[in-house]
Structure formats: C-alpha cells, structure tokens
Design a protein around this nucleic acid. Structure first.
Lengths: 129, 129
DNA sequence: ATGTTCAGTATACAAAAGTATACTGATATT
DNA sequence: AATATCAGTATACTTTTGTATACTGAACAT
C-alpha cells in the first residue's frame, strides 16, 4: 500500500514519486467540484439516462450534467452507450474504476466521522459550511 | 466501516445518513483546492513556520498561505502556536486529525494507481491535465 | 538611522467554476 | 399540423478561487 507519510519523509531525502502525484491528481479530478459525487452516487444506484440523472441530481442544470458526464467519460469513470432504438436510448454507466471509487469515498467518510468526534471531545468547533 | 454503496442502495429506500454527508463534506473541504495538500505535506514533513512553508510550497503567495492556514485552523486540521520569543516564533502544526488525513490520501493514491493500470490495459486514455 | 527578518495584510485583477434561461433537432404520438 | 419526449447545446451572466504586487509593523543588528 502507498504511504504518503513515507515519501514526504524529508525535504532532502527521496523525492515524492511522480506516479503518486499523478494518481492523486486523477483522484482529485474525480471527487472535486459540486456535482461529481452526486452524479456518481446516482450512477451507483443504477440511474443511467440523462433525463433520470437530471431528476435525481437535485438542482443540476442540463449544461452542468452534460459537462460533468463528458469529463467523467474522458477520465474513464463513465461509459456512454447509444442504443439506436426509438426513441434513442443513451445509457451512462460506471466503469470498473468508477465503481471502485466508492472505496475512496468510504475512507473520506470514515476520516470525517472520526474527525468530528475528535473535534467535539477536544472542545473545538467544526465549520459546517 | 461506512459503506457509500449501502446507503445509496435505492432511490426510495433508506436515505443517506446526514452525518455521512457532513463527514464527506468536511473531508472534501480539507483536500480540495490547489494548496491544501501541498501545505499539509509540508507540515507532515515537519515544516512549521510561515516563512518555511512559503519556501517549501512552491509558487504560493503569502496571501494564499495565510488564507489556507486560517481555514485549516478553523477546521481543526492545524494548530497555531505563538511563542513570545524574540524574534516572535509562530508555529503551525497538524492536529491528530490533521495527521490522520494521510490515510485518506493513501487511499486516493491507491485508487489512482489501480485506475491507471486498468485504463491502460483497457486501452483507454487518461487525461493527465 | 538604516537595513533585515518574521509574519503577515491590502488592493486590484484574472481565471475557473457554476447558474439561469432559452433553444435545437430527431423521432413519435394525437 | 401541433404537441411531446429525449438528449442535449447556446448565450450570457454571477460567484468562487487564485494571482500579482506592494506594503505594514514589531523587534533586533550594524
């Protein structure tokens, strides 16, 4: 398993592997922003059509949904399939990697939960934006 | 352990616990943006003074460093200590939670590494921004 | 008295991310 | 012929995020 603490162990010591930085950047691109996670959550629930994603992702506009789906597709998180039925059916679904991002989200939730209890028992405040 | 897949299991079924969303939002606030992770990395290396953080976080301006440190302090990721020596010494250090965020970063790196190999063996492209 | 270091702040601007609202074009239904 | 549905696109914003450049003030050092 990778260890962030290891490779940043010293300023003059071994440099951070470039591959780690690339991997981290990829992940940040997938989880950052207002809409990526809500869309991925809907896709994990099995929602697959543009219109259904619009409905189940509250307050998103078609422009944003379109833009985000394109980015997710470019990053191989989502696959777009066209079925030339009538009316045309376009199906968005998560790739293998797309499904596996749920593990990262789990670890984010876990840290956040522990963090909140630690902050409360330390008497500090949490900004609930 | 929390499971994102569970609580989003169905549209009409059990709602996503609000605490999960709050936890996830907390985590996103800590890892999102251009400077948070570079600063945390420097702090993990033991860099602690404003001037040293400025030097070891390449291209950051004092304005941004100041702003980010304030946010990290508000979110109990960083502690600011003033030593009334002369010249005054101000020390920034990670809290317990602040150090533990490294686990989340590790899981982000892991997903990113696996994702890249999967994308390559599937013949897809990865956007290397 | 002038300069240097530390720890920032002030002002103005540029770029990225997100919103609002309306529209398109293909096909099918009434 | 008019209306509806699906899957988006077009145009014009507003808001948030980040950059550039200069400055402040306290405490020493020369």
């Amino acid at each position: 398993m990778s260890d962030f603490k290891d490779f940043i162990g010293s300023d003059k010591g071994p440099q951070c592997p470039r591959t780690y930085i690339l991997a981290l950047t990829d992940t940040l691109n997938v989880v950052s922003g207002k809409w990526k996670l809500p869309i991925i959550a809907a896709l994990l629930r099995g929602v697959s059509r543009f219109k259904d994603l619009l409905d189940s992702t509250e307050k998103i506009t078609p422009r944003m949904l379109s833009k985000e789906l394109k980015e997710l597709e470019m990053n191989s998180i989502v696959e777009r399939k066209v079925y030339s039925q009538t009316p045309v059916l376009i199906e968005y679904k998560l790739t293998k990697s797309g499904k596996e991002i749920a593990n990262v989200i789990d670890s984010m939730i876990d840290w956040g939960m522990v963090h909140r209890t630690q902050v409360i028992t330390d008497g500090d405040a949490v900004k609930t934006s």
